[in-house]
């Protein structure tokens, strides 16, 4: 399952999630403001508390709303 680490009022998180939806990709939304476990996991993964962070395997991730990198990460055909 694809995970999206996000915050409530982060416009880039909203864009990233809408983009995944437009590609028919299901994801788990993890709010690092509200969910402490998600905050810890996000920091361990990326080394910082910046979002959106998208990962499919809890190892490789994309920080920020970067369509090209998201496509590569998730193997979406352009």
């Amino acid at each position: 399952m694809v995970k999206v680490y996000s915050m409530t009022s982060c416009p880039w998180c909203v864009k990233a999630k809408k983009y995944l939806e437009s590609k028919g990709i299901e994801y788990q939304n993890l709010n690092i403001e509200e969910d402490e476990a998600a905050r810890v996991a996000c920091q361990q993964l990326s080394g910082d508390l910046m979002v959106p962070v998208i990962t499919a395997n809890d190892k490789d991730y994309v920080l920020g709303f970067d369509k090209a990198k998201i496509d590569t990460l998730l193997g979406i055909a352009g």
Partner: peptide, 20 residues
């Protein structure tokens, strides 16, 4: 001024940081 980030020359910022 939210979500109207000018970005810098090197990168346009597309993320938010939790101000913790």
């Amino acid at each position: 001024f939210a979500a109207q980030e000018p970005g810098t020359d090197e990168e346009v910022q597309t993320f938010c940081r939790l101000n913790y």
